[in-house]
């Protein structure tokens, strides 16, 4: 899905996947921090947004 979305023009850091075990709390925190940093750097999503009443 990530590769397909990037292929169709979504920024590469917008969607992220990661394998984290429920026992890997430290890894979870690390990944969450990384994801938030990357998404903040990208700014608000402007691509995949459905605008109101574009089609009546």
């Amino acid at each position: 899905m990530k590769r397909l979305l990037e292929y169709t023009g979504i920024e590469s850091d917008r969607l992220q996947f990661s394998w984290i075990s429920s026992a890997e709390s430290t890894k979870f925190v690390k990944v969450v921090n990384e994801v938030t940093a990357k998404v903040k750097a990208l700014g608000p999503n402007k691509r995949f947004v459905k605008k109101e009443a574009k089609v009546a």
Partner: peptide, 9 residues
């Protein structure tokens, strides 16, 4: 580029 692909699709 990402922009070109978005426009293409």
């Amino acid at each position: 580029t990402t922009d070109e692909r978005w426009a293409f699709f």
